[in-house]
Design a protein around this nucleic acid. Structure first.
Lengths: 211, 211, 211, 211
DNA sequence: AATGAATGAGATTTCATTCAT
DNA sequence: AATGAATGAAATCTCATTCAT
């Protein structure tokens, strides 16, 4: 995989590089990819903007680096949930629950990820589609497994089920990227704890899918 | 509702004002709210740079005007589907189908709408939340009606069902805003006609909700 | 001929556009093409640097515009000296004299022209070689004419004679672009009036060429 | 003569210091004094950026060091041609020939030397004028010698003759610093071997000067 | 002595906005 | 009402130079 950061960036203390990436993410969520200024990130990180350019040749390179970091984290999450022999619905519930807590803890990553959907960010598409595909396959596998096991009705289209679950989880994760989205979530569910939201959504998913 | 355009804008031929708003939408989807330049819109519309500023006091005002226009269209869609005494699932299917064709015909509106979810666009939140709320209530009503009619299982949480259906429809509409999203849709469903996608998704929704 | 300035630049008062080009030339001679800052030219001309960019898309475009202006002036000079039926040596003397007074009055143009000889300015080559060629042909014609008339010895190689006269005139014109070059001229001739320099050089050229 | 390099630079292997100076020259010709970056030279020479600064306190000091090196080489050339009892024209021809082959072999030195003529490089003037003067005296001596010997006509102004010969040789040497100049030389002489150019120019110089 | 990470002044360029015509 | 020239704040990026290791 192509590296979008300099060797210098590799050599600086991990703590520092982590901080830079984390603060970049935060700033990107708050200001948007386009309106985030390299200089602001540098200021927040307590380094000179010149240093930012010794680490990343351009703003786009910084964004790509962040995207790749997101991949690693996401892949790890996928691989962790593999090999577990849970019931399909327990599996979905666990993923939903994990996704939700990720969204609450790290809305920055979700926000930047969602920005990549827009046409004006298509230049990053090649960097992200591979992972998107992995996510889609991940869901399809789960659904197929459920059908094979007989726990999901075979009247249901597997592709559509994967699409729906993916969409529901995505929508839920999106609900924490901004006040605006939090308001919408509140409109939907009122003021209830997040675990409660998972439970409620699971009644739907079970209802829909369970035979 | 506050007007964000000048009286001058009201007086110009409807055809011209329509064209300006339509081309603005197109440009906003392609470049993003932030990277779209007023001058580019003016050039596309064949009017002078300065004229844009006689119509809209600022770029944000243009965006707000576009948002309000979206509201009108959306409200019209809501009101049209009211008063019809369809079966709940027929109703959902029709909305799904309409939403899909809207997304295909006018991805620009969807794209700009989705951009408003991000924190860096929270300044537009007050202009949009009202309509978001209407949409949510719209779904809740449909679900409640279904439960009352007995066609939707009462084991299912109504709020969550509304959230899920809303999320699914939203995800589907998002699938047409960029090549990147189209690719993802293709990963999900392969190369099938759009009506087929609706049908497949309906097997899921019926399966989940139907008692 | 391709235009390297905007339509806006064409429309501003001639006096203003002249001033901008003149001050650009001056600044380019003093600081060099590379170290001249657009902002400094703007300041000298009493306009905003933003305006400079409405006139010229880039610094290179400004340079090209200046080069083209130099062409026009130079071509005019060529065409003026045509059609006159002077003796070859009178002709050369007149050109030498004119060139010298041009160099004294407008060293800026000479300086920028000479900068174009360097490899790092080869990107402008296509804009200048045509005129260079015209200058070379101009000299060759004069020498040939002299040989045909019998006033120049036919033992002399015409190409080389054109090269030498061109080189001498070029060197003389170069002598006014900087203090450094003026010093060198002083080392050569001491403190004598410029007409005297022309006379002295003519003794050489006559001596060399006259049969 | 003031040294513009550090003691450290004196201590490193001659081969290495030679390489650094040679590569600097090359880069300066290709990019120009102003646009050449110290870092690029360091990279080409395979040393670290910082090392360049342990050798030379600044970019200007590197340039001055290069200039002084040019002096040494040039002085050596002068001294070699002294003490030889050639006929004046043989002498000129030999210098012309030597200059030409120097220009072909080492256009980098010529290029940087010519850059020093411009006003924006006047800060190096004090470092170069001494040598320029030596060159001028060198030519004057040759011409005077020719007049004394009777091989150059006394109708000719000695100062002007020195100026002209100097200008011709300078122009010829300049002809190899860039593609642009090579094109001009080709316009003058077509595609002929360099020795032929010398021969042809000598017909002019002899013609002019020889009584 | 050599390295290369860090710095920050400053260059080019962009573009929302103003305003005289 | 329409125009488009002018403005200048601000963004991205460069690179000579410093300095700790």
């Amino acid at each position: 995989m192509k590296k979008y950061y300099s060797e210098t960036f590799e050599k600086i203390p991990g703590e520092k590089s982590e901080r830079i990436l984390r603060l970049s993410l935060e700033e990107f969520r708050r200001k948007g990819l386009s309106d985030t200024r390299i200089d602001d990130i540098a200021k927040k990180a307590g380094i000179s903007h010149g240093s930012m350019y010794t680490y990343f040749a351009s703003k786009d390179d910084l964004i790509r680096t962040i995207i790749q970091r997101g991949h690693q984290v996401q892949r790890q999450a996928f691989s962790e949930s593999e090999g577990e022999t849970l019931d399909v619905f327990e599996n979905i519930e666990r993923i939903l629950s994990t996704s939700l807590s990720t969204a609450v803890k790290d809305p920055d990553s979700i926000s930047i990820w969602l920005e990549l959907s827009f046409e004006y960010n298509d230049r990053f598409s090649e960097d992200t589609l591979v992972l998107e595909n992995e996510g889609i396959i991940f869901w399809k596998d789960i659904i197929k497994q459920g059908i094979e096991e007989g726990s999901i009705s075979d009247r249901i289209d597997a592709d559509a089920a994967a699409f729906c679950v993916d969409g529901i989880v995505g929508t839920l994760m999106k609900s924490y990227i901004s006040n605006h989205e939090k308001e919408k979530l509140y409109m939907h569910f009122g003021d209830i704890p997040t675990e409660m939201i998972v439970k409620k959504i699971m009644t739907v998913i079970r209802g829909v899918l369970q035979r």
